[in-house]
Amino acid sequence: MALLELRDIQYTVSGRNILAGLTLAVVAGEVHALLGTNGTGKSTLASLIMGCQGYSPDSGEIRFTGTLINDLKIHERAQLGISMAWQEPARFEGLRVRDYLTLGMVAERPESALRLVGLDPSRYLDRMVDRSLSGGERKRIELASILALRPKLAILDEPDSGIDLLSTDDIIRVLDHLRNGGSAVLLITHRDEIAAAADRASQICGGRIVCTGNAGQVTADFKSKKCISCDGEVCSDE
């Protein structure tokens, strides 16, 4: 049984089909990359899985460990074992890194989580998760929070984007650690070398998953603009 199953998800905004019959399965313990050009609904899909406000499918099922979770709130999904690192992580005035990394049911000590994302705990644990952090530092701390939580499913929305880019090695190290700890990862990325480090990958186009398979192959096809669905017409906007 898949850990996460999306069945025939329809999601429309102002009459525009964002997701049109999307079906996807992520199995326990795998790193699954989601590839697609800008505007194909990758981040929307992440928000739908997490249950963010305003993101509820018009139809279709989201199942986690077999349980229908369409109507569950974010924290209820988190308590089942889903968590997410946003593309633009929120900042919190007055909240220390050490406290942020111990929110919820944490499985990893904040010190080791910080080390895994390349941050020195002695320099960062007492800093605030606020505007004093650079974009890159904040993204690393967001990844550290996912490592600390060690959820059954981690959704990583473009961990490689933004200023002060995380290095490829850093992200792959995080993916390996999550996988070795038993977490599955749904990874949204634009970087081929990171996607290629996944176990499997899926390509999204026209609001649907158009292919799923070996990460290296799907990534190579995506890079060469091969799309079995639109024959490159939709996917060629990047």
């Binding site: 974010i74 924290h75 988190a78 968590s83 929120a90 919190f92 007055g94 929110l103 939580l149």
Partner: peptide
């Protein structure tokens, strides 16, 4: 802030717990 709320709720905090963390921090 909605984004702050959702981030904390994605850590498993109930909405009232998330508000508490945000307000206390501020």
């Amino acid at each position: 802030d909605k984004h702050q709320m959702e981030t904390l709720m994605a850590h498993g905090l109930a909405p009232e717990e998330a508000v508490d963390v945000i307000v206390k921090g501020m």
